[in-house]
Design a binder for these strands. Sequence first.
DNA 1: TGGTTGATGTAGGAATACGG
DNA 2: CCGTATTCCTACATCAACCA
Length: 300
Amino acid sequence: MLLKLLIYISFSLLLVLTGWFSRFTAKPAKPFYAKSITANLPTQRYCKNRKKPQWVVDKVLYLAAISGYGAGKVAELFNQRYGHNGDSVGKTFVYYQIKNQQYQIRILRRDIKHKPPRTLPVNQTWGMDLTTVTLNKQQKLVLGIVDHGSRLSIALRELSSKHSDVLLLEICQSIKQFGLPKFIRTDNEACFNSWWLKSCLKLLGIKHQTTKVASPWQNGRIERFFGTFKQKWQQLNFNQCDLQTELAIYRAWYNQIRTHQNLGGLTPAEVWQGRQNKNADQAQWVSAWQGVLCGYYVPD
DNA sequence: TGGTTGATGTAGGAATACGG
DNA sequence: CCGTATTCCTACATCAACCA
């Protein structure tokens, strides 16, 4: 009985003592709403529960729009780029941004897709390519050269062959008329990559740029030029005509008449000459190719 | 004035989906 | 089946509104 009493007292004492010591050893329970030390720190200091600044949200949405990744990957991308100065994001934050801002992301994707191409100086880069047109059930070879800066059609001529000499002759004629460009960009067609053509361009001081294999968009301006040309060409049934004359008419229309959205409503010739103000009073309505090519011509 | 409570925003781990 | 990416869940800090 006495033994039982002793065990009981010692056990109770142990409980009381451990409870009493725990006041010193255990971490005191923090009240749910207690003014913490961190509350007095400057607001610039990064705090994980502070609302993220707008630029972080914008960057996250932009990365989500261009990458198409999910929350984890986008968070990783963001932290890789901007996380070094303490502005890191968690994947949950990114997940909710992507989930709740689907419309904003779609708008961003659309804007990125339709972003106007980078403006380049006039007569710096020429895009050159070959295409074919059907005339009298025969395939005719056509060379096109477009200035990237002004979209001016430097040359649009029928070629007898793809031989380097023929191409060089056309390039030299264009240089004589429009001056020397810094770069000429072509695709990887064999005729453009011949040793002879490359050497001659090097002698002229022109750097030859080639697009990646199967990447026609890297020479997009000339491809777009040919796209418009073929669209117009197919609207008419040319039988008995001089191809060189028709190409010259189209080139004149493209350079002098047709305005470009990306050129601020100016024609390539106006951008090439640096003309900004049009004298609309002198504009004359012109039409060619049975009305397929038409528009206002503003004389100098 | 100071304590309580609910809302908000966030990070990180757990659970789940997916593709090779 | 395994590794990776995505989604969901939970804990936590802060703030504002409310109340005694």
